[in-house]
Simulated assay, not measured.
Amino acid sequence: MNMEAVQFDSRVKQLSLVKITVPSAPKGDQVVVQVAYSGICGTDLHIAEGAFPCKETPVILGHEFSGEVVSVGPLVKHLKPGDRVAVDPNAGCLTCDPCHNGNYHYCSGGGIDKCIGIYQDGGWAQYCIAPADQIHKLPENISLKQAGLTEPLSCVAHGWDRISPVPVGSTILILGAGIIGNLWAAVLHLQGHRKVIVSEPLEARRKLLEKLGTGYDIITPDELKVRRAKDLNWGVDIVIDCSGYAPAIEEAITLINPGGKLCIFGVSSPLAKMSVSPYLLYKNELTIIAVKVNPFSFPKALGWIEAMGNRYLDYEKLGIKTYSLKQYKEALQALKEGSIAKAMFKIDK
């Protein structure tokens, strides 16, 4: 039996729609999942451009996905066929010091270096095979459509833990209104934050974010510069970068109030560089916090999804458009143009 999949070959830097054999009967602790929704993220774009490392032989991309269990290996006890699930793509070796310290995302043989959809075949396919301990059963009140956002929300949950505490009333600047910026906006609004500014250069994305109904100040980077030019003392308490754009991050550091924080959340190209004034960091006692993937934060993301519901996780409000696997070129092009905040493959049975 064959299935459709979108495969990337790093040797020629090319994506292609292929027909390959459905994953075989699962062994040991393996689980075969029939994919329902699978997202395209900024990391995938970097991979497709050849700027982000991945498996050197052809690999099926897709590390954000939900679906239904089809079959389980003989060692799997907590899942059964028919269960609706979300898949955590990241894991560690479980034997090194970082893993033993609860930091598997630092593991040299794990974390993003072992990621399903980057180093192992992922969810841009009708079926995917994954270890049972990376699969989370969904509560009844979470749809497969909402669960397609579990992985990015689990990364936001890890970021939230890293930057906390964030007192309500803080002035917060989000750089970028792609899906990650929009999810951060939704989470901040859910937590009671109202003094939030979102800087986004693309008009289409600014209009999409307005649909979320947060009442946040959504402006262009040029408008941000004007505010600072009018008042050199104007600043923000926290900057959350969701753009991965080094020049924007570099400039935003100068906007942070004394005692403030910079959260580097967006994934930049490994080739990107930025310059920081050590004196400014000293003078304003600034904290720079980087966030890498989602260690043990899937349960927190599922809790957020239950709390957020359709008020925040409606695809139209978030600027998410669904595509079939056959439409992968169209989906990637729309993302690059910025006419949507996120592309999601909806994979029919």
Rank of each mutant, 00 (worst) to 15 (best):
L202A: 13
A177L: 07
I180H: 02
I129Q: 13
Q134I: 01
I116P: 01
P131I: 10
P131C: 08
A147W: 06
L144S: 13
A125E: 04
S199L: 01
G110M: 04
G109C: 08
G178K: 05
L149F: 15
G148M: 05
G82M: 03
D133A: 05
V166L: 15
W160Q: 14
N101A: 15
G82L: 07
A91E: 08
G123V: 03
I142Y: 06
A204Q: 13
C128Q: 00
I179E: 02
V187H: 05
P201R: 04
S143G: 11
C99H: 08
G123K: 02
A147V: 11
G192F: 07
A132H: 08
C99V: 10
E151H: 05
A147T: 06
V85P: 02
Q134R: 12
A132Y: 00
I129M: 14
L153N: 12
R206W: 10
K114N: 14
C96F: 11
E203T: 12
G122L: 03
D133F: 13
E140G: 04
A204R: 12
S164F: 15
T95I: 13
T95E: 14
V156P: 12
R162C: 14
R206E: 04
C96S: 10
L183V: 06
N103K: 15
D88E: 15
L173M: 08
P98G: 04
G159C: 07
R162W: 01
G111M: 10
P165M: 09
L188I: 04
G176I: 05
Q146H: 15
C128M: 01
A91M: 13
S154H: 13
E203F: 12
A130L: 05
Y104R: 03
T171N: 12
P98L: 03
V166R: 11
L188R: 01
G159W: 07
P98R: 06
V187T: 13
T95C: 06
P89H: 10
I118A: 11
S199I: 02
L149R: 06
V196G: 00
C115F: 03
R162G: 01
G181P: 00
P98I: 08
V168H: 02
E203Y: 11
I118P: 03
C96V: 11
Q134P: 02
L149Y: 12
V166S: 08
G148R: 03
D88T: 08
A130E: 03
Q134H: 09
L153F: 05
A86W: 06
P98D: 02
T150L: 05
L138G: 14
L175N: 06
I174K: 02
G159V: 06
D121R: 06
V198E: 00
G92F: 00
T171I: 06
N101W: 12
H158S: 15
C128W: 01
N182F: 02
I197N: 00
H189R: 04
G122F: 01
I129T: 06
E151M: 02
G159Q: 09
G122M: 03
H100F: 08
Q191H: 11
D161M: 14
G148W: 10
S108H: 12
S154L: 07
E203C: 00
A185V: 02
L144F: 11
P152S: 10
L190D: 08
I174L: 15
T95W: 10
G176R: 04
G82H: 04
G111N: 09
G109Y: 15
L183C: 06
L183G: 04
C99L: 09
